[in-house]
Design a protein around this nucleic acid. Structure first.
Length: 320
DNA sequence: CGCCTTTGACCAGCGC
DNA sequence: GCGCTGGTCAAAGGCG
């Protein structure tokens, strides 16, 4: 989302990018459930192949560039979260004290669950994709990674399931104020040893878009990544990369994951005759330069960021 | 019978 | 203090 926003503001093109890094939002077995009219491009160690009309070299270049940009995005969000949390912790030592269900979150866990607090710093704002937050919990630092993944589904599908290769147990469902469709709450099936949670809700704007918010990081491999066949109810195989075309507008959603193998899904490709051109534009050095420029500019313009940066620097300075 | 989902109740944070 | 809201619990029921 950061990439998407930056690209838009950089004036490169009205292309929306949603990069999903580190998760496998969909899987080979989930095609019909998560994506309509999917063109599958499988192959051994295929990495990311964008379309059949792109050469392997172009695809590899695109993959490399996207991976690089995603990594930069990840590092920046991580840094911002760390700096912001440091400042919050300094300003209000009690602010991190929040309601928690301690039965499921031992305080010494390195990836406790992502209960949101009043500061909202564990919640990904709309438009964010991956936000890592750091909560200070009585002296111990707890990193909570909040990741947002968008998946296109059949609008008639009401199951609220996101196939990501992990097994989940649903523990609640709520109708929220800002969205007519209910929000489903899932806990990793390996709980309590794994405290990852996810919330799944249809987008309020586009009911065919399923938004999954992951809180925390798995401390175990994906069952499907370990070679198991996907469970029909809760999991399916990982697809490291996917590209979806938002039919409601000139929006491209890229779902990238780090695990190797798999391929790229081109969604509703018939609706995107300019896909190749767009992909080339995304992969171009100009785009990347503009993106980095825009990211830097956005960060330095944000007084919160500069304040947090100053506070962090001050913390690092020796006291005289 | 065991696992999973559903769903109403409950709890805690927050604003007024 | 009260109401609203999001998040969680846990009993009940379904399903293989």
């Amino acid at each position: 989302m950061l990439l998407m926003d930056s690209a838009r503001r950089a004036g490169c093109s009205p292309v929306c990018l949603d990069l999903s890094v580190g998760l496998s939002p969909s899987s080979p077995g989930s095609g019909p459930e998560t994506i309509a009219d999917t063109e599958r491009l499988d192959g051994p160690a295929a990495g990311c192949r964008v379309t059949s009309s792109l050469s392997d070299e172009q695809a590899k270049t695109l993959e490399a560039r996207l991976t690089q940009v995603s990594e930069e995005n990840r590092r920046l969000t991580e840094m911002i979260a760390y700096l912001y949390a440091s400042q919050v912790a300094q300003q209000s030592p009690d602010s991190s004290r929040k309601r928690s269900r301690d039965s499921l979150e031992p305080s010494n866990s390195s990836d406790g669950n992502g209960n949101s607090n009043s500061n909202g710093n564990t919640k990904a704002e709309p438009g964010d994709h991956a936000v890592e937050s750091v909560l200070s919990d009585e002296g111990t630092c707890r990193r909570i990674k909040v990741t947002r993944v968008c998946t296109r589904i059949d609008p008639a599908d009401t199951t609220l399931t996101v196939k990501d290769g992990y097994q989940w147990r649903k523990y609640g469902q709520k109708v929220t104020r800002d969205n007519p469709s209910p929000r489903a709450y899932f806990r990793c099936a390996y709980a309590p040893s794994c405290l990852v949670k996810k919330k799944v809700q249809r987008s309020a704007e586009d009911s065919s878009l399923l938004v999954a918010t992951y809180e925390g990081e798995h401390n175990h491999p994906s069952p499907t990544r370990a070679g198991e066949l996907p469970s029909p109810a809760t999991a399916n195989g990982p697809v490291p990369c996917s590209i979806s075309i938002n039919s409601s507008g000139p929006t491209i959603t890229l779902d990238l994951t780090k695990n190797g193998g798999g391929g790229v899904r081109v969604l509703d490709a018939a609706e995107a005759p300019d896909l190749k051109r767009l992909c080339q534009e995304i992969a171009s050095p100009d785009f990347r330069t503009a993106l980095v420029d825009q990211m830097a500019r956005s960060l330095t313009k944000d007084p919160k960021f500069t304040d947090a940066l100053a506070a962090a620097i001050l913390q690092q300075l020796p006291e005289y």
